[in-house]
Amino acid sequence: MEVRDGLRYSDDHEWLRLEGDVGVIGITAYAADQLGDVVFVEMPAVGATLTLHQAFGVVESVKAVSDLYAPVGGEVVGVNEALAGRPELVNSDPYGDGWMVKLRVADAAQVDALKDADAYRELIRAG
């Protein structure tokens, strides 16, 4: 299962890519595979402020529902509107078109605290 280098990862199987002070967030290929066919993604409102680990949305597949937890705190500055009509993007392109939200990162230290790709590979290997 692909773990992309250069991204940061949470223990809840979310990835974060930093673009300036904005973090783009999605779920990993491993998480998408575990869920199976994603059928719906519930997103927060743009402008909402999330704290670290706050549940901000829900990803629903045919057989399971998972809460999404903020890997870092910050203000929601964008959500992936395309997922409303094409939730399957989460399965087909989890690190690209399947992204979920953009947060203006409040505390850069929280990004540093996330895992790098190798540490995340270790996490999913350990199951």
Binding site: D37, V39, F40, E60, V62, P87, E88
Partner: peptide
């Protein structure tokens, strides 16, 4: 059945 399309 195609359950994914049914739900999407």
């Amino acid at each position: 059945l195609d359950e994914a399309t049914a739900a999407r």
